[in-house]
Amino acid sequence: MEPLLRVEDLRVELPTRRGLRPAVDGLSFDVAEGEIVGIAGESGSGKTMTAMTLLGLLPHGARTSGSARFDGRELLTLGRRQLRDLRGRQIAMVSQDPSTALHPILPVGTQVTEHMRHHLGLSKSAARAEAVELLATVRIPDPERALGAYPGQFSGGMRQRIAIAVALAARPRLLLADEPTTALDVTVQAGILRLLDRLRRERGLAVLVITHDLGVMSAVADRVAVMYAGRLAESGPRAQVLATPRHPYTRGLLDALPHPEAADDPARVALRPIPGSPPSLGDVPAGCPFHPRCAFAVPACATDRPEPVPVAAGHLLACPPDPLPRDGAAPVPEGAPA
């Protein structure tokens, strides 16, 4: 059976001053019911555009190709009306910053119930009752009263919970969580991630978590896909990809995570940044887009475009040299990057 969401060879081109430029280039992944899949990558790697594509909310003039099938239906060719019926109802979104994603001057109750009533045809009182239940589910204290309050009256973590309640209100089957914890304190992050995990278990909700933070991935995702400059670098089961990364970029992201305990351990480095910065839209280098920043680049990397190939069960890798050791130990490159 086909999974709930199957994205195949997705290509999204955005209009820039110099014409259309690919923001997402040949991306493929699946999300099954009750599964949490993470997409990781630095800003500008096309993560958010992937989510916008699935909702049909790309900026004017954007062009898509490839395929994104949700429950057997092709999303890329849906009409405006069909997309609107799908948004919120089937696929919902929680975005990065709850302080800007919630409407500042509409009461929480309105924001939770408006699309619920629109999509499900509930009466005002039925929607209210359901909203109270939903706010309780995401652990908002005194949900009755919260309905009449405004987003500004809640803390950041509470707001993100409300945003999740808003996203869940019309009982969607797939939740797109775009950097759901980036704006939050670490302690609050853990609560939000646990909430996502609980919702997936209790409701069979499929979640696509988009983040630059591999720490968030390792906490909840079943499978992860690492993107660089709009392309897939590596994807596979979470434990496999994060414990024994095969792509130098994944390795780099892992090394860029702070390890405070490393201060006492001379063998480890507290935090090793990836040199350089990701290419901007339209400036993607030929060959492997990561090769200018890669410590393991060989001459072929600058010319041949790497395609993702299976290297283990469910593990795809777009790095033909495949230079990393299989035991997950941090490698020490011999020379400085070219």
Binding site: L55, L57, R84, D85, L86, R87, G88, R89, A92, M93, S95, A101, L102, H103, E114, H115, H118, H119, A163, V166, A170
Partner: peptide, 8 residues
């Protein structure tokens, strides 16, 4: 954008 994403 969030309001549009709700399918209103």
């Amino acid at each position: 954008r969030a309001a549009r994403a709700k399918g209103l």
